[in-house]
């Protein structure tokens, strides 16, 4: 089984090589004058449909994104517990099921609270 994980490592290295070689291929082709390289200030300016950028580009954004990020972290961690539970449910039987139900209900109370507080509304 461990050698399968080694395969994954080889796959990752090969995929990295594949991606990097595809992305650097145009640089090689530039040597043979197949790919043009003629930068000018207008071309490399920020594309905003012809208008000049007003102020900074990295502006403040909606705080609602953080709410979703927090909810995501909570439920993604719950998923980490759920996967082994789901695989072993055949042996855990009713006890394991009720245990997970109890664990869930705690999180669901939090979810319902967030829902009632209007976190899920995008305004």
């Amino acid at each position: 089984m461990l050698e399968n994980f080694g395969y994954i490592g080889i796959f990752l290295i090969a995929a990295l090589g594949f991606a990097i070689s595809t992305i650097t291929l145009p640089i090689l082709l530039r040597r043979f004058h197949i790919v043009p390289k003629k930068p000018n200030p207008v071309k490399s300016s920020t594309y905003e449909c012809g208008m000049d950028t007003v102020g900074k580009s990295r502006v403040q954004f909606n705080f609602r994104y953080y709410f979703y990020a927090l909810l995501f972290v909570v439920f993604d961690i719950q998923v980490v517990f759920l996967y082994p539970w789901a695989v072993a449910l055949g042996e855990l039987k009713l006890f394991g099921f009720l245990e997970m139900l109890a664990f869930f209900s705690i999180l669901i109370v939090g979810f319902l609270y967030a829902w009632r507080k209007g976190v899920l509304e995008w305004k």
């Binding site: 082709l29 200030p41 490399s44 300016s45 920020t46 580009s57």
Partner: peptide, 10 residues
């Protein structure tokens, strides 16, 4: 593949 690669100045 043969298009120019443009990197924004900023």
């Amino acid at each position: 593949l043969i298009k120019e690669d443009i990197i924004p100045a900023k």
